[in-house]
Design a protein around this nucleic acid. Structure first.
Lengths: 216, 216
DNA sequence: TATTTTCCGTACCGTACGTTACGGTTCTCC
DNA sequence: GGAGAACCGTAACGTACGGTACGGAAAATA
């Protein structure tokens, strides 16, 4: 994954950010079929300005993806007091936040677009999405897992592998179903319940406490 | 989900099936940007015939998705002798098969196309993919799970919920990463190992045997 | 107020592609 | 073998859209 999550090209004018927000809104509403004329009309700017600011259509859409990615920097899951309750709390909060993100209309629209682009050669939008979504999240959660291991609360060989299992328990088939257009509404209550269930299952699999550890 | 997995519109001439296979090959190679001219050239047929057989571009692509879906009918996981070994074997074989499907170039290309289409209004390709993939698989695995429950090997309230957890443990983040263009090669050995690990974890979570059952 | 820069709105151009039309060829059926 | 249908290859048409050009307004600078 080349694109680091840090190099967010968010050096944009307010005017330009408004344009990018217009693109995001159009993507959610129109579903990928976003023309330059539509963007210009929606953002009340001229096409000439669009090309001046973003180069070409691909530049505009890439900037939109980066812009949205720079806005998603979600909460940090501190690993201070490290009893099993704190660990469970951090993981549950992460899981709920993650479920909220992947089920949001903006995330769905943007992932749809990045996936459609990923087929064509010479596209890096998918890499940007992965770097700022899946992998950035992993780099923030893995320290929590490792701290839990250092405290003897959970056990695993590879934090990446453990994190991937956790991701699977949290996300299950939610994202692919939403991307394929399945009507699947996740209420905040359901998100909280699913996050707690996934965390319980993860701790049951990897915990060293009451429930015995399981080979992995 | 409207489209039942049975109503496969596979009433196609061999010539037409060859055309659809050409579309599939083009989708894998070119990544979604499949023009009618390319299909006609690749399939050595005239564009006039394409329009005569499939109506329009959307009809051709819809037929392609249905055609591929009708070919994926994978193995059935018999639930005869129901000791824990047989259950584990059935689940592992399903998991390996599923991982092989979702990591295949054809599946990736087709899901990319269906996801891109799912944004536009009035598209049902996503529903077709879900009906013939995710939900058809579920209808074949849930009886296995329920038989395991009847035999006292595993415990759960809702087979759908248990199946979704299993899906999560098997697929983890594989599908979304592949769809977004991540280089992620799953060798047959890795698939077998991941399938076994996911099955072990699932049985650890839901099993009533040696490992204690876990609330879900 | 005069000048320069930025930018909006719109008209315009070139191309790609979906769709249709047509001449020539092969296959089918009698 | 001959009539008709099906079909291939290609050319042509219309439209949509990415990209550019231009006139005028607004804002900035002096």
């Amino acid at each position: 994954m080349a694109t680091a999550p840090d190099e967010t090209g968010d050096a944009f004018t307010e005017r330009q950010q408004a344009v990018l927000d217009a693109v995001l809104a159009l993507m959610v509403e129109e579903g990928g079929d976003v023309t330059m004329t539509m963007v210009a009309r929606r953002a009340s700017c001229s096409k000439e300005s669009l090309y001046k600011w973003f180069g070409d259509r691909d530049g505009l859409l890439t900037a939109t993806v980066r812009w949205q990615a720079s806005k998603v920097r979600a909460g940090n899951y501190d690993r201070q007091r490290l009893d099993v309750l704190a660990l469970r709390d951090s993981l549950t909060r992460f899981a709920a936040n993650w479920l909220g993100v992947i089920s949001s209309p903006t995330s769905i629209a943007l992932n749809r677009f990045a996936i459609a682009q990923a087929g064509a050669r010479g596209s890096n939008l998918g890499a940007i999405m992965l770097a700022n979504g899946r992998f950035a999240i992993g780099e923030r959660i893995k320290p929590v897992l490792e701290a839990g291991r250092d405290a003897g609360l959970i056990g695993f060989d590879d934090s990446e592998t453990a994190f991937r299992s956790f991701l699977g328990l949290v996300g299950r088939d939610v994202q692919i179903r939403l991307l394929l257009g399945d009507r699947l509404t996740l209420s905040p209550a359901e998100i909280e319940r699913d996050a707690a269930r996934a965390t319980d299952q993860f701790l049951a699999l990897y915990g060293t406490g009451t429930a015995g550890p399981v080979s992995h």
